[in-house]
Design a protein around this nucleic acid. Structure first.
Lengths: 197, 197
DNA sequence: GCAATGATTGACAGTCACTGACACTTCCGG
DNA sequence: CCGGAAGTGTCAGTGACTGTCAATCATTGC
């Protein structure tokens, strides 16, 4: 019954981010698999049980930030004019990621997270699952706006294709700063669907 | 030092498929998460320890068949004429999947597996990880054939896009038999990259 | 100021996936 | 008959996660 962000919610978020920061530095130092939840909890100064009250799994500590990115991406997409070709709307939504790459601080953070993910097959799996979920969200946003003129299967595939471009472009540019945006442009231009209105 | 398929390899495969069949029926009946490895081992008539000598994880029992599909897909792709546009080569490689859908027996089996996967988030994650690996394999096959004329990032993205089409087309046709092939054709035609030679 | 109430926590026990170590059997070539 | 190689069961242990319960802490109503 409380408004979206109650007082309790705020302090909960604060604890969560404290845990996340601690955990990420441990992960970067020792690796994800090699760091136990007990260690994280001890480093934060709480019991293992309490750790699981803030994050439903060890994976979630790392992937939590991705969740918010997904929501932002979806709202960006929703803001695009409905007349715009879907492919271009997706590209514009991805600007959010490009912008994050522009800021050195958040890029460094993102790169660290990506490194942690890439080094743990287990985490990578969860990560891909989140991406999948994210794609479903964007597909829904796109479907809602397209009305019933478009084929839902094609729309779903298009979102997947756009993400493939994003993924393929981001991968080689984790360490490189500014080449990412142009690379994404180039890739999405090359893969632009023929019958894109 | 032995040839690819030694006598021992064969019997190992036999045991593996016995385990897999047993496990899959248990998964279908009770669900993946609700079935313990102990139960599977007991049903097959071996110790838990031996189960893990045949499958490195519980996930693997389900995803093992996918591994072979990946290899077949890669070899199909390698067989395509190098002059053919990559997009079309990928579509032709996917015929393998379409053909599997044609056979009622294997379709029923695949559908059962897909149902198991979809109902377990944990399994779904592993599944997507395998798909990712599979895409990397196909990308390599494509890169090898394209020489150094093509952008590797674009190639990677194209494979991802093709898989997005496959995935999006397969999803609604698990139960429907023959609509799959045409749907895939339609989707891949709609998403065909503009500058596809 | 105080008691009832609800949220947060730690401690503990238990499940389950998975691993390493070791002892035992079987089978096969010498 | 003996040697080792391969396959197996048993056991103990780790680590992620869950349920439960009792203690604590803050809030609210009086």
């Amino acid at each position: 019954m409380t408004a979206g962000t109650s007082l309790r919610e705020v302090s909960r978020r604060a604890v969560q981010s404290r845990i996340a920061r601690t955990a990420e530095s441990l992960f970067s130092a020792k690796g994800f698999e090699e760091t136990t939840v007990d260690e994280i909890a001890a480093a934060v100064g709480m019991s293992q049980r309490s750790f699981f009250r803030y994050f439903s799994s060890k994976d979630e500590v790392v992937l939590d930030s991705l969740e918010r990115l997904g929501e932002d991406l979806a709202s960006r997409l929703a803001e695009r004019p409905s007349g715009e070709p879907e492919w271009d709307s997706l590209r514009r939504a991805f600007d959010l990621v490009v912008e994050r790459f522009g800021d050195p601080v958040s890029r460094e953070h993102d790169a660290a997270i990506q490194r942690i993910i890439d080094r743990s097959p287990r985490l990578l799996a969860s990560y891909l699952c989140r991406l999948e979920h994210l794609q479903r969200m964007l597909t829904e946003a796109l479907t809602a706006r397209a009305g019933d003129g478009a084929d839902p299967v094609v729309l779903r595939a298009m979102v997947g294709a756009a993400f493939a471009c994003l993924h393929a472009s981001a991968f080689p540019h984790i360490d490189e700063p500014d080449a990412f945006g142009p690379c994404l442009d180039r890739t999405m231009a090359a893969l632009r669907p023929v019958d894109c209105r």
